[in-house]
């Protein structure tokens, strides 16, 4: 059973203690937060810096397919793309992971064996999370048994919004326990808040701390299934949270914005946020990920542009 960072063991002793702790976090001024995110968005990343950022961004992608129409063939195609994103240029970095539903995890594991690309599986009745706890845990167990390296869980937003923070906390603890493996490395746990449903920045900060206290390895913005997903502002806020958490506990936690990041320009802006907020320790795919699918092709086109000096166009990257 994972334990809470010692500095905060009192905070999770009871529902009321947890509420006091989360509501005692500094407030977030929405105007100021968005202004800061926008101002970092004006950084001009050119030439060598751009080349670095594009390769880094490719290496941070959780290449994702989460559709009812997913098939083993589709997953295998995506796995091949993850390993060789640009078939014409073998120097292109691999993506960090392929992200699928639990029933596709075994297919992804087989397709990616030996490649170094991780398999991430959403679980816990993704994306709504509206199921009994034992159903959610069974979902996680399936994915872990299939060999998933990473589990992307959703929190119970209903419980969170009605103030039952301890319920959310305990559910994360229970999922974390299912990520343990006796015969190998534990699956890393990404905790999805669905920031679009939490609605306020104060809630996003509270959810971030709640997730970190419960042992999340990553905190993740969103499922990609609602209207508002990752934004520069909510990602900046979560980067502040992991920065502050490490300063206070020594424990480093990753961040994953997901959904809505489609262009290289956007991705580079997020990397600037990482660089100037959490710092360079997070400029690594062990600590920062993009949950995205169409982003990869745009990064590849930009990468080709940097190496050849001209835009190739969408027919020169693979459609999977």
């Amino acid at each position: 059973m994972p334990t809470t960072a010692p500095a905060f063991s009192d905070a999770t002793a009871s529902d009321s203690a947890l509420r006091r702790f989360l509501h005692g976090l500094p407030g977030v001024d929405a105007v100021g937060l968005e202004a800061r995110a926008a101002s970092l968005g004006t950084r001009s990343i050119k030439t060598t810096a751009k080349a670095y950022a594009i390769d880094l961004a490719i290496s941070m992608i959780d290449l994702t397919t989460l559709e009812g129409a997913d098939t083993p063939g589709k997953v295998r195609a995506l796995a091949a793309k993850a390993v060789h994103p640009d078939p014409t240029d073998r120097t292109t970095p691999r993506t960090a992971a392929v992200c699928v539903y639990p029933d596709m995890a075994a297919t992804a594991v087989a397709a990616l064996a030996g490649s170094g690309v991780k398999v991430a599986s959403v679980a816990t009745a993704f994306p709504a999370g509206r199921a009994a706890l034992d159903v959610k845990l069974a979902d996680v167990r399936d994915a872990v048994a299939a060999g998933a390296d990473e589990i992307d869980m959703v929190i119970d937003r209903g419980a969170f919004l009605s103030g039952r923070y301890l319920k959310v906390y305990e559910e994360i603890l229970a999922v974390k326990a299912e990520c343990a493996r006796a015969d190998g490395p534990d699956a890393r746990l990404k905790v999805i808040f669905e920031t679009g449903e939490l609605s306020t920045y104060d809630n996003i900060r509270r959810a971030s701390w709640l997730g970190m206290l419960a042992g999340a390895d990553f905190i993740k913005t969103s499922t990609g299934k609602v209207a508002t997903n990752a934004t520069p502002a909510n990602t900046l806020l979560m980067l502040e949270a992991v920065r502050d958490f490490r300063a206070q506990t020594g424990v480093q936690i990753g961040v994953k914005p997901a959904g809505g990041i489609r262009t290289s320009k956007d991705a580079v802006k997020f990397l600037v946020l990482v660089n100037e907020t959490a710092g360079e320790d997070w400029l690594d795919n062990h600590w920062f990920r993009f949950g995205a699918s169409s982003l990869l092709n745009d990064l590849l086109m930009q990468r080709q542009k940097l190496s050849t000096g001209r835009y190739s166009g969408p027919d020169y990257v693979t459609v999977d």
């Binding site: 990343i45 050119k46 600037v272 360079e280």
Partner: peptide
């Protein structure tokens, strides 16, 4: 010095 050095712009 940082891993992510911004080139002159």
């Amino acid at each position: 010095a940082s891993a992510f050095e911004y080139a002159p712009a």
